[in-house]
Write a protein that binds this DNA or RNA. Structure first.
Length: 696
DNA sequence: GTAGGGTTAG
């Protein structure tokens, strides 16, 4: 009988070993169940193989069901006391790590009486794989303190954490540690270090390591191709790919994926994938789906996604996100339903993508439902999801919800502070934003470019020049990149605070201003009364090869209004529509109406309004009413006031304009009447304030 | 060891 048992076991063991190559959790378990049905008693080797086969199959099976199955294995092991063996326990730990059950893994580790180096390695790399980067670090320190000698595998597990956290200094220390311990000869360590340098932005460091490698494997080439891609050097990535092929090395699926993320042409690579037979590779398809989705070609993405034999969350999230970007919830919701039908467990990234699509006020109910879903599934615990909810409520101007979500967050990373500060700024509550900014600093966070850009925009709103200058000082002291976002925000702050000379100085210091920065200057000149400078900048930006957008034209039109240049305004408007194919928005139309009516062309202004494609809003009619005030057109003004009242009776500006109009004609009874209505309706409770701080 | 989905901004 015992001979039969060992023979039978050998048979099942070899079956399990073959599963290790094919990597399917289901069939491994099936084999195990058949083994039990044959009345065979599993040995430690059986369990070890079963666990290994399951652990290596975690990609598509990261579901609740797999977690339950892992728990079942755990119970079996516990009952048979095989779990006492360190290597079996480490195997199980690894399985939990691959399923993302990091708590269970930690639990197993803690109750190991005699941990060996392999167990330490398993948990360190487990933390790292699941992005518990700080935990990985601390465990490494603990390991060294307890007198264990790290191996190559330890470093391979730990180094990616340095890359993800962009901890260049710590990464270099570990590199040094590896050199001293003689572990840096290991090719896996070298690859991991190369990738770490690239992620920390030290491309030179990555290149040196790559060049040093005597035997470059496909993984080494992939790492360096990825390194170029991540640092925006797309051509270099492509050159390296060709070099690699010239050495007769076969590209694998990761090579293709690295190239895809390096902005290579998706159609070319799609053809290449078909040619070399990667079209059945779920990861390659998922990457292609992502690229198509990113280009905004959601339909191609969805078509390709459906060709997958087993749909996966990554590729579905890419599609959701491309629809969400456009706020198209009619497409997002069916994707969600589909994921539920397929029994997919959504993760925090998928959830955040969905929330991102809830923009239209008509979709508030859907947003609330997803908030509920987040609570039920426990996903809202993730600060990513909480941030997504904060941004969503902020888009709906529900600042109370924003504050309550923020206060409930257990962990508040910088990005959450940025979210709430930007919510306040957008809601016009710059005072609150400033207070939060101070609190954030007290919590020990160092503001990043986004914090500063947001705060600057708050200063622009209120004309807080002094605070804006302090932020400028912060930018200089911390060597923050002055291009794009920060440069624009700073220029805008100086413009809005009425210090155009300072804005000019910043603008000139930016080597290659982007379109948004040019727009800020043009708008600044436009509203500040320097229309010729605005027009010159418009010409100049085109000389630099930039294409004006709708904001540029708003700026130019503002300049025309200020200078009363009707002809120029008409020409710019026509140019915008005909030459640049920009369809005029309501703001453009309001600008044209303002321009025409200010110069007394009421007939043309009315004709313009009649020919508008979209329904004129209160800004358009308001612009015309403002023209009436200037030209004392009482009759037309009264007609417009009625129209405006019907459109938006709470708009205080209407009463102010009418009052001014009557006053300009000396019609004091009417002035009194309008002022009385204002008081009665309480529509304009607060008076407007203009503020400018004097420069010192 | 290498790769893939997401958030904050003018």
């Amino acid at each position: 009988m015992s001979l039969g048992n060992s023979f039978g076991l050998c048979f099942f063991h070899s079956l399990l070993k073959s599963q290790l190559q094919t990597k399917t959790l289901k069939s491994s378990l099936l084999i195990f169940r058949q083994l039990l049905q044959s009345n065979l008693k599993p040995s430690d080797i059986t369990f070890s193989l079963l666990i290994k086969a399951s652990a290596s199959s975690s990609f598509a099976s990261n579901s609740l069901k797999s977690k339950i199955e892992a728990n079942q294995m755990h119970t079996h092991l516990f009952k048979s006391s095989i779990i006492q063996l360190v290597y079996v326990k480490t195997g199980l730990l690894n399985l939990y790590v691959n399923l993302g059950c990091i708590e269970n893994a930690r639990f197993l580790f803690e109750e190991m009486p005699d941990r060996d180096v392999v167990a330490w390695n398993a948990l360190i790399s487990g933390y790292s794989k699941n992005c518990y980067d700080i935990f990985a670090f601390n465990l490494f320190i603990e390991m060294v303190r307890e007198g264990f000698r790290p191996e190559a595998a330890t470093l391979v597990g730990l180094v990616p954490s340095c890359g993800r956290l962009e901890l260049a200094f710590q990464g270099k220390s570990i590199h040094g540690f590896g050199v001293k311990a003689g572990l840096d000869k290991d090719s896996k360590v070298k690859n991991a270090l190369t990738s770490m340098y690239a992620k920390c932005g030290d491309l030179e460091g990555a290149e040196i390591l790559f060049e040093e490698m005597v035997e470059k494997t496909v993984v080494s080439w992939n790492t360096m191709i990825g390194a170029y891609g991540q640092n925006g050097l797309f051509d270099e990535a492509m050159v390296l790919f060709n070099k690699m092929r010239a050495q007769d090395l076969e590209a694998n699926s990761v090579t293709l994926m690295s190239l895809l993320s390096a902005n290579a042409d998706p159609e070319t690579l799609h053809c290449f994938a078909i040619k070399v037979g990667f079209v059945n590779n779920a990861s390659v398809i998922a990457s292609l789906v992502c690229v198509y989705a990113k280009c905004g070609d959601s339909e191609s993405a969805e078509l390709l996604h459906k060709s997958l034999s087993q749909e996966n969350l990554v590729s579905l999230t890419a599609i959701v996100s491309s629809y969400a970007e456009k706020g198209n919830m009619d497409k997002v919701v069916p994707c969600f339903t589909r994921s539920q039908m397929l029994d997919m467990e959504l993760d925090e990234v998928a959830m955040v993508s969905i929330l991102h699509g809830v923009k239209n006020p008509a979709n508030i109910a859907i947003g609330l439902a997803f908030h509920g879903y987040g609570i039920k599934t426990g996903l809202f615990i993730h600060c990513l999801v909480a941030n997504g909810l904060i941004s969503m409520y902020s888009r709906f101007n529900d600042i109370d919800a924003v504050f309550s979500l923020f206060s409930e967050m257990q962990e508040k990373p910088l990005i959450s502070w940025n979210s709430i500060i930007s919510s306040c700024v957008q809601a016009g509550r710059t005072g609150d934003a400033m207070e939060l900014f101070c609190q954030m600093r007290m919590y020990g966070h160092v503001p990043d470019a986004i914090t500063i850009a947001t705060m600057l925009s708050g200063c622009s709103q209120l004309g807080y020049l002094q605070f804006g200058k302090k932020l400028h000082g912060f930018i200089l002291r911390n060597n923050l990149e002055m291009e794009d976002f920060i440069g624009t925000a700073l220029t805008d702050m100086y413009v809005k605070c009425g210090t155009i000379e300072l804005a000019e100085r910043i603008f000139k210091s930016i080597q290659e201003p982007c379109l948004a920065t040019w727009n800020t200057m043009i708008t600044g000149y436009g509203i500040g009364g320097f229309e010729n400078k605005a027009f010159n900048h418009y010409t100049e930006l085109q000389k630099r090869g930039l294409k004006p957008d709708k904001i540029t034209f708003l700026g130019v039109l503002a300049a025309c209004i200020h200078g009363g240049n009707v002809d120029k305004g008409r020409r710019y408007f026509q140019m915008m529509v005909e030459e640049f194919a920009i369809s005029p928005g309501l703001q453009h139309c309001a600008s044209m109406v303002a321009l025409l009516s200010r110069c007394g062309y009421f007939g043309e202004a009315l004709l313009f309004i009649r020919n508008m494609e979209s329904e004129p809003d209160s800004a358009v009619w308001g612009a015309l009413l403002n023209g009436c005030c200037i030209h004392q057109e009482v009759k037309l003004g009264e007609y417009l006031a009625k129209k405006l009242y019907l459109l938006d009776h709470r708009n205080g500006g209407l009463y102010v304009l009418m009052s001014n109009l009557y006053a300009s004609k000396g019609m004091w009874d009417d002035v009194a009447r309008v002022r009385q209505i204002m008081k009665d309706t309480g529509g304009d409770g607060c008076s407007g304030t203009s503020l400018i701080e004097l420069t010192s």
